[in-house]
């Protein structure tokens, strides 16, 4: 299943590394990343593929939330379909 990971928060060293490490541990493959600083906030969107992971979707959600908490940023993961539905015909 393809999903979009969104990370927003105050910029600091190691956010991308932390999130990617956690994704790698769960065997979630990163397909694309875009990252910028918007209005002083670190903003990153990643397209990932969870089909190789043994974790269930809620387990991935919980793991990312925990990682986000320790990094002091907000992390969420949502199925890509919701964005496609809204922005692609």
């Amino acid at each position: 299943m393809r999903a979009v990971v969104t990370v927003v928060g105050r910029d600091k060293v190691g956010i991308i590394a932390g999130i990617c490490l956690r994704l790698a541990e769960m065997n979630v493959n990163v397909l694309d990343i875009s990252q910028t600083i918007m209005q002083g906030l670190f903003t990153m969107n990643m397209l990932v593929d969870t089909s190789g992971s043994e974790q269930t979707f809620p387990e991935i959600v919980n793991a990312l939330n925990a990682e986000g908490e320790s990094l002091g940023v907000s992390v969420r993961i949502q199925r890509e379909d919701i964005f496609d539905a809204m922005h692609r015909i």
Binding site: V4, T36, T43, N45, F83, D84
Partner: peptide, 11 residues
């Protein structure tokens, strides 16, 4: 891929 503006608009 979806662009950042679209993702942020939805969120």
């Amino acid at each position: 891929m979806l662009n950042q503006r679209e993702i942020i608009e939805t969120l």
